[in-house]
């Protein structure tokens, strides 16, 4: 597999273990070969969370619904943050199902080393499999929440057909999901790699993600005139903003959409994901000695 200069002539070594390997030696093909293991991790994740709960995966419904209602009461009724013409619950559900996918992915990826220390100490497999399995299992969660969102969407569409204007940009959904996943896993891997050495970061992550939500148009929209122009310009540079705006624009007909901004967002994603994979892959090799 790895070609080395000092291989004896009569031998076919399958593998050569050496102290230093190139930064770019990412075992992507091995990850693909072990995709079955990845699926098993997804399965284990679901079993771990929902076996022996009465409502099971229904919790995926309940959580965003209750959060939407809370947002409705706090930000809309008390805080007076407008959701435009779009019914509030629908507006929040759209933002939340998107945001949750990102937030869950980053939160869980950022504790990969901590959560799997024992496993990593006992057996080798490409560690990248774990973050990828998190992306997949969160994708299932997203699927369920998205389904809920679609039901609510259809209901309102049937009630007030003129207010909500779903459009062909819906076809961008897989791409938006990929962006969300890329951001979540990329940032998550960077953070998890740093936390193996600098533990303080653990505390920063969960509340950092929470703060980030307020800097991202989840409970408000940049397209609405209630946001002061100066803020809008700044918030628009948050690479997550175009994703949420595009999503709402596609399904609700309300939001700011620009190909340029989507491209901007994509560039960020590619950079973060690449850096994330490289750092993660580097740290993974030394991790067992520092934990």
């Amino acid at each position: 597999m790895h070609s080395s200069t000092n291989i004896p002539n009569n031998h076919q070594w399958l593998e050569v273990l050496q102290p230093h390997q190139s930064l770019f030696d990412v075992p992507l093909s091995e990850v693909w070969r072990k995709r079955y293991l990845m699926l098993m991790f997804v399965k284990r994740d679901f079993a771990a969370n929902y076996k022996q709960t009465i409502l099971g995966p229904l919790w995926f419904f309940i959580q965003p619904l209750l959060t939407s209602i809370t947002f409705f009461l706090i930000f809309n009724k008390v805080g007076g943050i407008s959701t435009g013409k779009v019914p509030q619950i629908l507006f929040y559900l759209a933002g939340l199902s998107c945001w949750n996918y990102f937030a869950e992915t980053i939160n869980r990826t950022s504790t990969v080393f901590k959560d799997n220390a024992n496993l990593f100490g006992k057996v080798y497999f490409p560690r990248l499999i774990i973050p990828l399995s998190i992306v997949l299992s969160n994708l299932l969660r997203f699927g369920i929440q998205f389904f809920l969102f679609l039901i609510v969407l259809l209901y309102y569409w049937w009630q007030q057909p003129l207010v909500i204007q779903p459009n062909a940009y819906m076809l961008l959904t897989p791409y938006l999901l990929m962006l969300m996943a890329g951001f979540g896993i990329g940032l998550g891997m960077i953070i998890s790699s740093l936390t193996t050495k600098y533990r303080d970061l653990v505390f920063l992550v969960s509340f950092g993600v929470q703060l980030l939500m307020y800097a991202t148009p989840v409970i408000y929209s940049l397209s609405l005139p209630t946001i002061p122009t100066s803020y809008r310009t700044v918030l628009w540079y948050n690479p997550l903003a175009p994703i949420l705006e595009t999503f709402r624009f596609a399904y609700l007909g309300q939001g700011m959409f620009s190909w340029a901004m989507l491209l901007y967002s994509s560039c960020w994603m590619v950079v973060l994901l690449t850096v994330g994979i490289l750092i993660f892959n580097k740290v993974e090799k030394r991790f067992m000695d520092t934990i």
């Binding site: 291989i7 031998h11 076919q12 070594w13 399958l14 593998e15 050569v16 273990l17 050496q18 102290p19 990593f120 100490g121 006992k122 057996v123 080798y124 090799k285 030394r286 067992m288 000695d289």
Partner: peptide
């Protein structure tokens, strides 16, 4: 642990066939 690839060697080489 090194043979199992759980951790890396500090120096040296292991060839596995």
């Amino acid at each position: 642990k090194i043979l199992s690839k759980v951790t890396k060697p500090t120096t040296g080489t292991i060839k596995i066939g």
